[in-house]
Each structure stands twice: as structure tokens, then as C-alpha cells.
């Protein structure tokens, strides 16, 4: 009998919430990837176009740094609504319990 009540909760977190957060992570990676933030971050100290002069190194670092900052900000802003929905999924099964507690007290 306990199974009938506990399994749906377990399923909710093990399957629904887990797969949603995997989906969220993949989407975040997709945005970071689409904006070339990850390759730029990985090569932050590598000069552009294989030209290894000191001037080019400085320009490259400057350009790559701001590229990463903008790319990261842009991707994060895009992912925030999805993240909020994820939080809602996390607390959803507890919502009725919280409400019941509030009614009782």
C-alpha cells in the first residue's frame, strides 16, 4: 500500500525532474555552444588565426574575454525561465503539503 503512495513521488523526482534538468543542462550547453562561448573559453590564451606576435596575443585575449562574457550572459538570460520552471517542478509535490500545513496551523 505504501508503494502506491511513495512510488509516484519517487518517479516524479527520478524521472520527470531528473530528465527535465538534463534537458535544461543540454539546452544551456546548446546556447553556450551556439554562441561559440565554450571554444572561445577553451582557447582564451591562444592567439587568433595562428599569428603568434605579442600584439596579436593581447588583442586576441581582449576579444576572447569579452566574447566569453557576452556569450555566457546571453545564454544564462535565455535559460532563466526554464530554470524557474524547473524549480516549480521541484516543489510541486510539496505544494499541497505546505498548504495543508498552513490550513492546520
Amino acid at each position: 500500500m505504501l508503494d502506491i503512495f511513495l512510488k509516484p513521488f519517487y518517479w516524479w523526482y527520478a524521472v520527470i525532474v531528473r530528465s527535465y534538468f538534463i534537458y535544461l543542462f543540454l539546452n544551456y550547453s546548446f546556447y553556450l555552444n551556439k554562441t561559440d562561448t565554450i571554444p572561445m573559453f577553451k582557447n582564451i590564451f591562444v592567439p587568433l588565426f595562428g599569428r603568434k606576435g605579442i600584439t596579436n596575443r593581447i588583442i586576441s585575449l581582449f576579444l576572447r574575454f569579452w566574447w566569453v562574457v557576452f556569450g555566457f550572459t546571453f545564454s544564462t538570460v535565455l535559460i532563466i525561465p526554464m530554470f524557474l520552471f524547473g524549480i516549480l517542478l521541484l516543489i510541486l509535490p510539496f505544494l499541497p503539503i505546505i498548504q495543508t500545513y498552513r490550513i492546520v496551523t
Partner: peptide
């Protein structure tokens, strides 16, 4: 399905590290 989100869709040298 999983990998495609992390793989580049355009040219591979997106960090402009190598020559054209």
C-alpha cells in the same frame, strides 16, 4: 540526439585558432 546539442553545426574552427 544527445551529442548534437554539443556539436558544432557550422565550420569546425569556431575559436579562430588555426589558419584558413
Amino acid at each position: 540526439k544527445r551529442l548534437s546539442k554539443l556539436k558544432p553545426k557550422g565550420p569546425i574552427n569556431r575559436a579562430y585558432t588555426s589558419r584558413a
